[in-house]
Design a protein around this nucleic acid. Structure first.
Length: 268
DNA sequence: ATGTCCCTTGGTAAGGGA
């Protein structure tokens, strides 16, 4: 089985790209982030024509996550239990469309769009950290309850866990940028160190210089100035089945590309 | 060579988010 994760940065603006990519990538499951669409604006027919079932979770023009599968799509779950809410000062906190799960051919797949954080002192940062903390608690419990659990936590994590995961770590540190701070890295690393999940892509494609995201501005892509922030974390039992993994950097090329590349794993 | 891209709205420009 082949599982991909891809922050598409608008499902409607990317419809042709996604259709073409499904045609040539031969993936069985595609976890999508940043659809930027409500259900009523979601291009259901795109997936139907391509032979995929699809489940979507979108409440407004922000965020939005989906899972498309041609190997079954069962027990769809929108948001994880006790998922933190967010609202700007003066606004009512609300659930955001950042997590959707489904079981596809026996694998429990979570399509995740982790909050950005926006700034080290921004209210969005404690939201991001709490969001990851609560999710990690569940993830740890799932594998404690069942050591054979087949779970894939995939998506845009908005964290660069290592210095080599950005093109210029000094720029990030001097500038006080998000994604590389110790609290963010600790929140991410807990999935690996405490819950026992494995990044199954990095060992096959170590850095430096291996990225999944390149900002649209500043010619970041042609200058090879990117960030590794999209990950597939597998439970121990699922990680043992992984036979291959790659980042489809070519999909970032050309006009009309998302700013993220798809990340793909192969399971026996 | 390069001042991005995408979404929304009593819109046709401006603001929000990444």
């Amino acid at each position: 089985m082949r599982i991909a994760t891809w922050n598409v940065n608008s499902i409607r603006a990317r419809a042709d790209r996604i259709e073409a990519w499904l045609d040539r990538s031969d993936v069985d499951v595609l976890a999508i982030q940043e659809t930027k669409a409500k259900d009523e604006n979601f291009p259901w027919e795109l997936f139907e024509f391509a032979g995929y079932e699809v489940a979507h979770f979108g409440v407004n023009q922000w965020n939005g996550v989906a899972i498309a599968s041609r190997v079954g799509l069962k027990d769809v779950e929108r948001t994880f239990p006790d998922q933190p809410t967010f609202g700007k000062p003066g606004q009512e906190p609300a659930q955001e469309a950042r997590a959707i799960a489904a079981t596809c051919d026996g694998v429990r797949i979570w399509s995740l769009y982790v909050p950005n954080g926006r700034g080290l002192e921004d209210p969005h940062m404690p939201y991001k950290l709490e969001w990851l903390r609560v999710l990690e608690g569940h993830a740890r419990q799932w594998v404690q309850d069942d050591p054979d659990a087949q779970i894939a936590l995939v998506g845009d994590w908005n964290v660069a866990p290592r210095d080599e995961d950005v093109w210029d770590i000094q720029l990030f540190k001097d500038g006080g940028y998000t994604h590389v701070s110790e609290p963010e890295r600790a929140a991410f690393n807990a999935f690996v160190e405490d819950a026992g999940y494995q990044d199954v892509v990095r060992p096959r494609h170590p850095g430096p210089g291996v990225y999944t995201y390149w900002d649209y501005t500043q010619l970041r892509f042609p200058k090879k100035e990117g960030m590794r922030i999209d990950f597939q974390l597998c439970s121990p039992a699922l990680a043992a089945r992984v036979t291959d993994a790659w980042i489809d950097r070519d999909e970032r090329k050309g006009k009309g590309a998302s700013d993220h590349a798809p990340v793909v794993i192969e399971i026996d």
